[in-house]
Amino acid sequence: MLYILFEHAAGYALFLSTQSEEIGAQQQEVQQAMLQLSSFLQLVKLEGFSPFKSGTNALENMNCISEGLLHEDLKNFLEVNLSKEADFTLGVSDNKLGATIQETLGFQCSTLGAISDLIRGIRLHFHQLVEGLTKLAQDKAQLGLGHSYSRAKVKFNVNRVDNMVI
């Protein structure tokens, strides 16, 4: 079984790849199928979605994701959805986060094979894969989080030399 973790400004989503055998060999197929929503829906199925509770909550999670760290929210989300499963691989976008998840939760993680292409497909169709999420809501969540993440980067940079507080 192949699950895919997708992290978005609106929340965490978990997908099940419905064609997990020999994922390496079907890359060409995945690439073609992912372009149309109808055929992409044959490849993945939404297993769980956990929206962020607030803008602050989303920012905390993005700060962890960008550094490859496992936030408590993500840990809970994966535990709730996967702890009963046996013999599966979790496809992730980032090796570092994969290693952290593997170490903390014992889930086997991978970024190889068709995983990156499946994630491209999820990114392309995301607002149509999660019920209740609209394109507008998706863009708004990204806009809000883009601002708060970037503001914090500018404000709390340790290497900043101008504007010292004494």
Partner: peptide, 17 residues
């Protein structure tokens, strides 16, 4: 706006479509 290093696009994956 994304204040981040373009060498590491995975860092901003939550906010880019």
């Amino acid at each position: 706006p994304i204040i981040e290093d373009a060498r590491h696009p995975q860092k901003y994956r939550m906010i880019v479509s």
